[in-house]
């Protein structure tokens, strides 16, 4: 049990990717929070991490795709997929363990920013005077959003034996489902269809959860989204059996 999960986590920590992802995420969010003119906490004068929660979805599109890109594609390239799929474990178990390994790294990366949260908490006047509900909701939203990206990334990785191709497919799909769908939904000519398109965008539900109100409809949407892409990954796995 969990052998694949452990191997994946170990391989993240043994490769540079994990540290680059964590470092880049901390540096970029830190820059936007504290230093970038006009939007930083000091310029706005508000003790909140809102700036970070606004920018993170876009940073994570790249970083989460980088985490998942080699997950399955590399096994295909090396041929080791034939070894692990002829062991007494199911395809679904392989996929889930790989998925949760990627999710662990994502969660850990997000946790690192609690350092910023702590700073903001202490900057507030009086200390601790922040909208805690909104902050926790935003963290939950960000985690669920990253979990969706990870499921897209794993799916993209199963489509090819080339990591770079997987990275690009994953980024394009993630960007589409986060931002483009909402932009299409806002087109006036689409009218009602537009509004339902909007409902399918990740951004819509991310913003909804970020307000600090955890609506079960949003949770169901995120979990459904993840299931669809993990199910798609399983289909690609099984496609070797069709012909």
């Amino acid at each position: 049990m969990l052998s694949i999960y452990k191997k994946e986590v170990r391989s993240f920590l043994g490769s540079l990717i994990a540290y680059i992802v964590m470092g880049v995420f901390l540096i970029l969010t830190g820059l936007f929070l504290w230093f970038v003119d006009g939007n930083s906490i000091f310029d706005l004068g508000v003790a909140s991490l809102q700036v970070m929660f606004d920018i993170s979805p876009y940073i994570l599109i790249f970083l989460v795709s980088a985490i998942t890109m080699k997950s399955i594609s590399d096994e295909k390239r090396l041929g080791t997929l034939e070894i692990i799929t002829t062991k007494p474990i199911t395809d679904l178990q392989i996929i889930l363990e790989k998925y949760f390994a990627a999710l662990t790294l994502v969660a850990f990366t997000l946790l690192l920013t609690s350092f910023y949260a702590y700073s903001v908490y202490n900057l507030a006047l009086p200390v601790g005077n922040i909208d805690l509900g909104s902050m926790l909701g935003s963290y939950l939203g960000l985690f669920l959003l990253a979990a969706c990206y990870a499921s897209i990334g794993l799916f993209a990785s199963s489509l090819t034996d080339n990591q770079i191709v997987a990275l690009i497919i994953s980024m394009v799909l993630s960007f589409f489902f986060f931002a483009v769908l909402g932009m299409l939904g806002d087109l006036e000519i689409l009218d009602k269809i537009g509004r339902s398109l909007n409902w399918f965008s990740l951004e819509f539900h991310y913003n909804s959860i970020s307000r600090g109100v955890v609506d079960t409809r949003d949770l169901v949407f995120f979990l459904g989204f993840i299931s669809v892409f993990l199910g798609g990954t399983k289909l690609v796995f099984e496609s070797r059996k069709w012909s």
Binding site: M1, L2, S3, I4, K6, K7, S11, G14, L78, G79, T80, E82, I83, I84, K87, P88, I89
Partner: peptide, 18 residues
């Protein structure tokens, strides 16, 4: 096919696990 960046024992322990 093999994972070239794993140690022999580490690899065999992984395979034993699955």
């Amino acid at each position: 096919p093999l994972y070239l960046d794993m140690y022999v024992k580490e690899y065999l322990e992984f395979i034993a696990g699955i």
